[in-house]
């Protein structure tokens, strides 16, 4: 790790000020991705701003029938939340499957989506549920517009995720085929029947989470495994690596979609 200055601001406003005042500063929330990155000297921030303990970023609340989760809420808290379990059980079980118990005890929702690892789980829920990302600049960014590319988001350099609002779906489920080594998603499919229609978000398969529109259309026509079978997933935009070639990933998208469908009921 390179040397850096450490800050633990007392408020979101102070965190935002620190971030805005220094282009080389970076945010630290749960640190489950960022600390390993620092350890391998893959990042060299001048300053690290620890927002993991900010009260303003905490809390899980019911809002407009859905759930609003603070950016610094840890995965284990989401997994264990009775509120989330009651309103959006798919989200709780997704959180329960992230990393391992110790990662879930430290890692945060805001950290996960701001990092936008192509194989992370939360982006699939944000897109799959049509969630809204709220920021320190007062913006409310639609889930569909938030993830812009591999490790890239719609956040401005000095903008901080404060919370995510997940509307309650009619039904939803997430199915993941994990990389046997890292346990990140090789393919993860979040499937939801929402007020605004069927949403199918796929993570792990491509450089960035995406909506599988062909699956959405087929499931809108008929909410059935046969609909999924009828769709062809184009592998040409999917990742190929030592763990899975693109055509296998394309196949797994359908298998995971069917598993999610079965789980969603």
């Amino acid at each position: 790790m390179y040397a850096f200055n450490y800050h633990r601001p007392a408020s979101l406003a102070e965190a935002a000020r620190l971030l805005a005042s220094n282009p080389e500063a970076k945010l630290l929330a749960g640190g489950q991705t960022y600390i390993p990155t620092l350890k391998q000297r893959l990042a060299r921030p001048s300053d690290v701003i620890d927002i993991g303990g900010l009260a303003e970023l905490k809390g899980i609340t019911e809002e407009a029938g859905g759930v609003t989760i603070g950016a610094a809420v840890r995965h284990a808290e989401v997994a264990g939340s009775a509120l989330v379990r009651r309103l959006i059980p798919a989200l709780a079980s997704l959180a329960e499957g992230i990393g391992d118990p110790q990662v879930r005890n430290r890692g945060t929702l805001g950290g996960s989506i701001a990092n936008n690892d192509p194989a992370a789980d939360y982006p699939a829920a944000v897109v799959g549920l049509g969630a809204t990302v709220r920021t320190s600049k007062g913006r409310a960014i639609a889930g569909d517009a938030f993830f812009t590319g591999m490790f890239e988001t719609a956040l401005e350099p000095d903008e901080i995720v404060t919370a995510v609002h997940f509307p309650k779906p009619e039904k939803a489920a997430y199915a993941k085929f994990p990389n046997p080594a890292s346990r990140y998603a090789i393919v993860g499919v979040f499937l939801a029947k929402t007020a605004s229609g069927i949403r199918v978000a796929v993570t792990g398969a491509a450089p960035c989470v995406f909506r599988a529109t062909a699956l959405e259309q087929a499931l809108a026509a008929s909410w059935s495994a046969a609909s999924i079978d009828s769709v062809t997933i184009d592998p040409s935009n999917l990742n190929s690596d030592i763990h899975a070639q693109a055509d296998y990933r394309a196949h797994l998208v359908k298998v995971m979609a069917k598993r999610a469908l079965a789980a969603a009921g």
């Binding site: 046997p180 080594a181 890292s182 030592i242």
Partner: peptide
């Protein structure tokens, strides 16, 4: 080495 950590080498 493509399998140089537990991220890629499956223990």
């Amino acid at each position: 080495l493509l399998t140089g950590s537990y991220m890629d080498y499956c223990m």
